[in-house]
């Protein structure tokens, strides 16, 4: 899968957020989007997902996305009174699997991410880092070829951030394209490529 952005311009009223931005993102790789607050990282994620209208330029996805992108955000929403396994299985149910198949797929992904021990626990009893890993597992189990993460480790301590990043990057091994916006240099350094957003344009580091 390849997403190509060419001379993309996005403005909100008078304010130009992305100004002639061009970039290419390929599956099985992970990209870290860095830049100061307000630089347009979240907007760029929205453009990649097709949720933000482009003023000029183009967005080309090849092959066409058959599934909605999966999102992981700073405080990913989960069903607090359901178990972690139930929450991960939601991702599989969303793509039309039966409940039994969804639970099986969820169990497999949780094993891959080494969070099987969380499966039977209620989400409300989990720590912030554990919840984020459950959210990542859910995003992977959706079979979405594109995973977009917006500050997924922002509120986590170093150890938890590492575990969540491990989980996200493991999706690349499954052939997914992972793009994450972060301020955390350590997290960014572990990605295949680091892109810095400055003055509406992207610069590879």
């Amino acid at each position: 899968m390849r997403i190509t952005l060419t001379s993309v311009q996005v403005a909100f009223g008078e304010r130009t957020v992305l100004d002639g931005l061009s970039a290419q993102f390929d599956s099985s790789l992970s990209y870290a989007l860095m830049g100061p607050s307000g630089a347009g990282k979240s907007t760029l994620l929205g453009v990649i997902a097709g949720l933000v209208d482009i003023g000029s330029g183009s967005r080309h996805v090849e092959p066409t996305l058959s599934e909605s992108p999966a999102w992981v955000v700073q405080s990913s929403p989960l069903l607090p009174r359901r178990t972690a396994l139930d929450n991960v299985a939601l991702g599989a149910l969303a793509v039309g699997l039966s409940r039994a198949s969804a639970r099986e797929a969820a169990t497999n992904i949780m094993r891959e991410l080494d969070i099987t021990h969380l499966g039977a626990q209620r989400v409300s009893a989990l720590s912030g880092g554990e919840r984020q890993r459950v959210a990542v597992a859910r995003s992977i189990v959706t079979d979405a070829p594109l995973i977009l993460a917006d500050e997924p480790t922002a509120s986590l301590d170093r150890a938890s951030a590492t575990l969540v990043t491990d989980a996200l990057l493991s999706a690349c091994k499954l052939g997914r394209l992972v793009i994450l916006a972060t301020h955390d240099a350590e997290v960014a350094n572990r990605c295949s490529q680091i892109c810095v957003l400055e003055n509406g344009a992207l610069r590879e580091v």
Binding site: A49, G50, L51, L65, S66, E67, S68, L79, R81, R82, D86, L93, A94, V95, G96, S98, R99, T142
Partner: peptide, 23 residues
């Protein structure tokens, strides 16, 4: 944007499970 495919039976089941979770 591509749509996901929620099964009607699954949605009904989710309603029941959520009721049970908030017992």
């Amino acid at each position: 944007m591509p749509r996901r495919r929620w099964n009607t039976t699954v949605l009904i089941g989710e309603a029941g499970r959520n009721l049970a979770a908030h017992w």
